[in-house]
Simulated scan of single mutants.
Amino acid sequence: MTATITAPATTEEAPLYRRAETRLAVVGKGKRIHYSATDDTLCGKAITRYTDVEEAATLGYEHCGRCIRAAEDRAYSISLAGASPLMAALHDVVDTVEAVDAARRDLPTVGQMTTLARLLDELADATGEAATHRDNARLLLANHDMTFRLASTYLDRLIPAARALRAEAAAARAANDQAAAKAAAALEPGMYARDGRVYRVVLSEAGRLYAKVWAEGDDDTPPSFEFAPGAIRHLRPEHRMSAEDAKAYSRRIGACCVCGKTLTDPASIERGIGPVCADKV
C-alpha cells in the first residue's frame, strides 16, 4: 500500500502522522516516508534522517504501507485513550512495550559479539587504521556501549582489515615456501648439521630429496637415522658437513654417521665412516 504525500490541506482532521503522534522519517536513499514513534520506524527500520511533510510533498515521496497501517492502529488507540482512562493506561503500556522492544532490537546479537571477539583477537597486532577501529570497538565493549548498529559498523570495518592481514600472511608464507624450495633445490645427498642435530639428506626413488635425523636410541631401539618430516625445508648448502666433521661426529656416536651402523673395523673406526658409506659424504 503506497500513497503520494501532499502538503497538509486545511481540514478539520489532522494528518495521520500527527494523530499517531509520530514523526516523518527517511530510511537510506529510499523515496518513501516512514513514521517513527521511537528511534526506529514503525515498520522496524533504522532511521537515516527525519523530514517534514513539505519536503516530502516537494520531492514526491510516498508513504510506507506498513508504517501507514501501524500509524492507523496507533491513531485509533490514541483516540480511544482520549475518551477512556482505561484506554489511556493501555496506550501507555503499548508505548512502553514499543520502547523496550526498540531497545532490545538495538542490542548486538550473539553472532555479532562472537565475530567481533574473533576479529579483535585476530587484529591484536594490527597497525594504522585497523588498530584504531580495533581499539574503538574494544572501548565500546568495555563500557557496555556496543549496540546493534555500532556492531554492524565495526564489523564492516574490521572484516576487510582482517582479510587484508590474512592475505599479507599468506603472501609471506608463500614467499618463505618459495625461498625454502629454492634452497632445498641446491642441496645434495650427504650429511648436514644444524642447530646441534645431524641430518642425512637422501635421494628417494622418486628423485626427491628428504632428510633423516640422527636419533640416539635407547635400551630397546638402536641408534639410527630416522625420517624427519619437513626438515629438508630448513637445511641449506652451508649446513653440509665436511669429511673431517663427519669423522669427528662418527667417533663421538660410535657408529657410521652415514648409515648409523656400529663400526667394528679399526680402519672404519679411524675414518669414522664405513667403507660403503665413505663415498656418500
Rank of each mutant, 00 (worst) to 15 (best):
M1G: 00
M1R: 02
T2F: 08
T4I: 09
T6Q: 12
A7D: 12
A7M: 13
E21Q: 05
V27L: 02
G28W: 01
G30K: 15
Y35L: 11
S36G: 14
D40E: 12
D40L: 15
L42P: 15
K45D: 05
V53G: 14
A57T: 08
T58F: 11
R66E: 10
L80M: 12
A81I: 07
L86I: 14
M87C: 15
A102K: 01
A102Y: 04
L107V: 13
T109N: 04
L116H: 04
A117P: 07
D125S: 01
D125E: 01
G128D: 03
A131G: 03
T132G: 04
H133D: 00
R134Q: 02
L139S: 07
L140D: 06
D145I: 10
M146F: 09
M146R: 15
T147P: 03
T147V: 05
F148P: 09
S152P: 10
L155K: 11
D156N: 13
P160C: 00
P160M: 00
A161R: 02
R163Q: 08
A167K: 03
A169K: 10
A170E: 14
A174C: 12
N176W: 10
D177A: 14
Q178R: 11
A181P: 14
A184R: 02
A185P: 07
L187D: 09
P189A: 02
G190S: 07
G190F: 02
A193H: 01
R194S: 11
G196R: 05
G196V: 02
Y199E: 03
L203G: 05
S204F: 07
E205T: 12
R208N: 14
Y210V: 06
A211H: 05
A215C: 09
D218F: 12
D219G: 10
D219S: 13
D219H: 11
D220Q: 12
P222M: 06
S224N: 05
S224I: 06
F225N: 01
F227Y: 15
G230S: 08
L235N: 06
H239R: 07
M241I: 04
M241H: 07
S242E: 07
S242C: 07
D245H: 12
A246G: 03
G260F: 03
K261D: 06
T264W: 06
D265E: 06
P266G: 02
A267Q: 00
S268A: 07
S268T: 02
I273V: 01
G274C: 02
A278W: 02
K280R: 00
